[in-house]
Nucleic acid binder design. Structure first.
Length: 193
DNA sequence: TATGAGATCAACT
DNA sequence: GTTGATCTCATAC
């Protein structure tokens, strides 16, 4: 078994971390799977929550790397990020999609769905399927209930513009597993196939 | 396949 | 009062 991902893994450039998370395994209370889609956000990026400085909501982003930043999206959903770089850098990787491998029955129950493909194909869906809420904001990723493992296989990474934002819309900071059926949305090169 | 409405909360103007 | 790092369901084509 490979060593779990710990704080030094996250204390690096947010884009490097984002790329390396593709294919990595993420579990929450034993439920989860293979990360297939993420987006990178940096405090110099107008689309990032940390762009305009620290607030109560985004405080975790300004803290040490290797922690979970969970926020409410559109008043309805929860979305989880992994804090990266050094303390104060306020950069994070948004987890957008997972290929379910562990605890699929629990995910189906929480999501009220049969289709495995739709269990975790979007940031709000990931949190609902894994049971992540604002109560988990600020938790360390290196210990329970989180468990993270590096990828063991070779992957082809697709990049493209991020989804659902209105600022810095052209920056290609969305990263995904090329050809995965569990993406929230296909990448352009793949769609043109 | 594509577009639109509604749900609902915290930050910000 | 407006706006989102969203998702689901309904209706139209």
């Amino acid at each position: 078994m490979p060593r779990p991902l710990r704080r030094p893994f996250f204390a690096r450039d947010v884009h490097a971390v984002a790329r390396e998370l593709i294919g990595a395994t993420m579990l929450f209370k034993g439920v989860g799977g293979r990360i297939v889609e993420v987006e990178a956000y940096h405090h110099t990026d107008p689309a990032a929550h940390s762009y305009n400085g620290q607030t109560r909501r985004n405080a975790v982003m300004f803290g040490p790397p290797g922690h979970a930043y969970v926020y409410r999206s559109y008043g309805i959903h929860w979305c989880v990020n992994f804090v990266c770089e050094e303390e104060g850098s306020a950069s994070a990787v948004l987890i957008r999609a997972i290929e379910p491998t562990d605890g699929i029955a629990a995910m189906r129950r929480r999501r009220g769905l049969k289709d495995e493909r739709l269990l975790c194909s979007g940031p709000g869906r990931v949190c609902e399927a894994l049971g992540i809420t604002g109560a988990h904001n600020g938790l360390a990723l290196a210990k329970p209930p989180f468990a993270l493992w590096p990828r063991r296989d070779d992957v082809t990474i697709a990049t493209g513009p991020r989804i659902g934002i209105t600022k810095a819309v052209d920056l290609p900071w969305r990263y995904g597993l090329q050809g995965s059926r569990f993406l929230s949305k296909p990448f352009r090169a793949q769609a043109a196939r």
